[in-house]
């Protein structure tokens, strides 16, 4: 975890419908110096924010109150913004064309979050 400074100052968008998990993610990200630019817990809100906010990386929950967040993933891909899926489903729950996106399985530890972010960034 010595190179976590590489994430210092990057702008992160958190899309997660579980408030507590969202809070924990924020806490983890703050610890490594990331800058929170926004959070979204519903699909429509997430789409607007993914389209408009200036973002360096996004953490994307696959299931947003019963709706799949893949439209958000498409927008982020189109904008060339690196992102990771945060999910209780494994990588098997993803559509074939998104299997290459790093997955952070729930529950997770700090180390796993950083690993996933590093994979997305490179």
């Amino acid at each position: 975890m010595n190179d976590t400074h590489i994430f210092a100052g990057i702008r992160v968008l958190i899309i997660e419908d579980e408030a507590l998990v969202s809070m924990m993610l924020e806490e983890f990200l703050e610890q490594i110096g990331c800058k929170m630019v926004g959070t979204a817990s519903r699909l429509d809100d997430a789409i607007i924010k993914a389209r408009s906010l200036p973002v360096d990386m996004a953490l994307l929950d696959v299931n947003l109150a019963g709706e799949a967040s893949f439209p958000v993933a498409e927008i982020l891909t189109a904008r060339d913004i690196p992102f990771i899926f945060v999910t209780g489903y494994g990588a098997l729950g993803l559509p074939a064309e998104m299997r290459h996106i790093p997955v952070l399985p729930k529950p997770f530890q700090m180390a796993q979050l950083i690993d996933a972010m590093r994979m997305a960034a490179y």
Binding site: T87, G88, Y89, K106, P107
Partner: peptide, 24 residues
């Protein structure tokens, strides 16, 4: 079964988040 697994994992993440906040 997939849905149930997802919920279990989500719940574990939530418990983890609660504990994390509580023990802050």
């Amino acid at each position: 079964v997939n849905e149930l697994n997802h919920r279990v994992k989500n719940t574990l993440a939530t418990v983890q988040a609660i504990a994390s906040q509580t023990l802050r």
